[in-house]
Design a protein around this nucleic acid. Structure first.
Lengths: 209, 209
DNA sequence: TTTTCATGTTTTATAGATAATTTGTGCGCA
DNA sequence: TGCGCACAAATTATCTATAAAACATGAAAA
């Protein structure tokens, strides 16, 4: 496996660690991120921390005001909806381009991920399986930039999911996923795309606590 | 006007300068970007240059391999098509959300930008007017993340436009733009959206030299 | 109460050290 | 001679340590 910059450099490791904590909700929206603090925590200097901040900023997980520091990106209901709409548009685009390249093997793998999700013990596990499901059926589109953007949006969605307004959680049988797979298996691309769009937008409509 | 981080800090100025050169084609795809070189050129040290690199990377204008430096992002015909498809999807989404907020004033402003483009003396001027046209009709969607993503995609499109395969250039009367405005004026959102999608995708279909 | 100015804190930038990769060189061997 | 391999030198990215600039805070003066 090609090792990404996230693993190789100190800045990359810091990026990953901070992203994880923001997504998991450990860092609350609006929280100030002080470079010296993390420099000390990771036993590094503040320069790689700054580089990590730039990446988080690009992913939409943090916002930076010049000379005033960077904070964890806030997200209100409008932003959640925005991310959901963007994901819906782009995932549909990806699916339409992936469809001609989808093999039964890929769909079986997706189904496996879906079952994983249905048997998940907690939200984290479910989210991981959910991400894998979407990834697997979209990846064959062969559009790297599109996939990267979708990943960023997915991270933003996950933030919302973990944002503590759903403490008691139970694994849902993901009917939408099943419907998408069935449509793909019978070559009904339009149906699959429409279901996917509705499915993704639904996330943005969750009752906000 | 709110001053962006691009103007305030050294890293920001370097980012802007390098982005411009990449987009304009002065830096060719695949070209190695050495931090010490630009540190010297901008009379700065290499740290702000590195931060600029991170941002260019996020915008898709550069790619970085850990410990091996960063290069100007390549773009083949497939990537151009990818960017065009993404733009089409996202601009349609933006337009649909902007439509309810569009006023006659805004549409008049857009029309002015379109005329600017038609009278443009060179590609740069045309591109600037073109960007302004799209921006003006999409901005009222009130979705900042969506707009930011569209901006990045637009920059990538502009790269393609400037890539020297269109040396002799003449300002086109932009019929698509006019059609979009006419549709919006008569509240035919679907027509406007469909025209916009076709218009944006067409860019990706330009005969490659 | 408002303004000014000093002080501490934080971001930003520089200069120098470290580590990894690439390039060049020499040697052995076909 | 030509090719491949090992090893050394140079180049370059990465990181640390330190200094400078900007900002926030709060006390003193108007």
């Amino acid at each position: 496996m090609k090792k990404s910059s996230t693993d190789t450099t100190v800045a990359g490791r810091i990026t990953r660690a901070l992203a994880e904590r923001i997504i998991s909700g450990e860092f609350e929206p609006g929280m100030k991120l002080r470079q010296d603090h993390f420099a000390e925590e990771f036993g590094a200097s503040h320069v790689p921390v700054r580089e990590a901040f730039r990446r988080l900023e690009a992913q939409g997980l943090a916002v930076s005001e010049p000379r005033r520091g960077v904070r964890v990106a806030s997200f209100d209901i409008a932003e959640v909806r925005e991310v959901a709409e963007m994901r819906a548009s782009l995932e549909v685009l990806a699916l339409r381009n992936a469809a001609p390249n989808l093999t039964p093997d890929i769909l079986d793998l997706a189904e496996a991920h879906n079952r994983e999700g249905e048997n998940a013990a907690d939200v984290q596990a479910w989210e991981q399986a959910n991400k894998a499901f979407h990834r697997v059926i979209l990846e064959p589109c062969g559009m790297p930039r599109l996939l990267a953007t979708i990943d960023d949006l997915h991270a933003a969605s996950a933030r919302f999911l973990f944002s503590g307004f759903r403490m008691e959680w139970e694994a849902p049988t993901d009917q939408d996923h099943r419907a998408i797979l069935a449509a793909l298996r019978s070559n009904q691309i339009d149906v699959a795309a429409a279901t996917l769009a509705r499915h993704v937008k639904w996330i943005g409509k969750n009752p906000a606590r």
